[in-house]
Design a protein around this nucleic acid. Structure first.
Lengths: 122, 122
DNA sequence: ATAACATATGAATATATGTTCATGGATAGA
DNA sequence: TCTATCCATGAACATATATTCATATGTTAT
């Protein structure tokens, strides 16, 4: 994977149209952007995480409640929450022996909502 | 992973508030919805696919042009296009020895655009 | 102090995923 | 016809990922 594709040599199959070349050139997202985009979408790319996130959409919920609701093991939930934590997608708050998690990224909140809308009504 | 979590037994940590229980119950997405959501987000969870999709956002492009633009091997591109094809996210059109691909799902188009907006300006 | 509860974490494991390599098929041009 | 070009595909491989298991930490209750 060459990191710096040679954009001057693009030929838009059959037409050497300069406008087409410019179009492709402008449309291509750069590597760091692609990486950050992939990172945020990857957080939403697993059914278990999506179920957890759905529970966190409205308000904070403690791990135990999540466990009761989603039917995953406590360990699996904790691992996924750590994953979301490391991406700064959720925040947590300790209260006694409970830990309350909440969504902390409006990007994923909006993407989740939009994706859900599309999936639900086809 | 139990497929049918027992929602009646949810206790929202510290409060047996019925409203809270209802809230969790309503927020939780069901398994098929979670799976379809994950599927669409997974398509957007890889930097290479995102670069390809970015090139297909404006108009159809043939595989060769994609190869010139993204700096991936022809084989890797073809495999990724097959992946997107199997999810009905792209359509293709043959013309001579060229094959033109185009985005064929407005959901991913909108999700990509929204994600890009968020990532670009922080 | 002891037991029960809520959560986190490391290791192990099984599976999924993305790429390369080699090759095949189809089409256009000489 | 022969060759070059464009694209697809299966196999192999290396890496990533999600879960389980065992265990550790801290908190509340008795």
């Amino acid at each position: 994977m060459t990191d710096a594709p040679i954009l001057q040599d693009i030929t838009v199959c059959g037409s050497e149209d300069e406008a087409e070349i410019e179009s492709l050139h402008n449309a291509l997202i750069d590597t760091p952007t692609a990486n950050r985009l992939a990172e945020i979408f990857k957080a939403l790319s697993d059914p278990s995480r999506l179920r957890l996130i759905s529970l966190l959409m409205e308000h904070e919920v403690c791990v135990h409640s999540l466990e009761m609701a989603v039917g995953m093991s406590q360990s699996a939930i904790s691992h996924q929450l750590r994953y979301l934590r490391q991406l700064n997608l959720v925040r947590f708050r300790k209260e006694g022996r409970h830990v309350y998690y909440a969504l902390d990224d409006d990007h994923v909140r909006e993407l989740f909502a939009q994706g859900l809308l599309h999936v639900e009504h086809g």
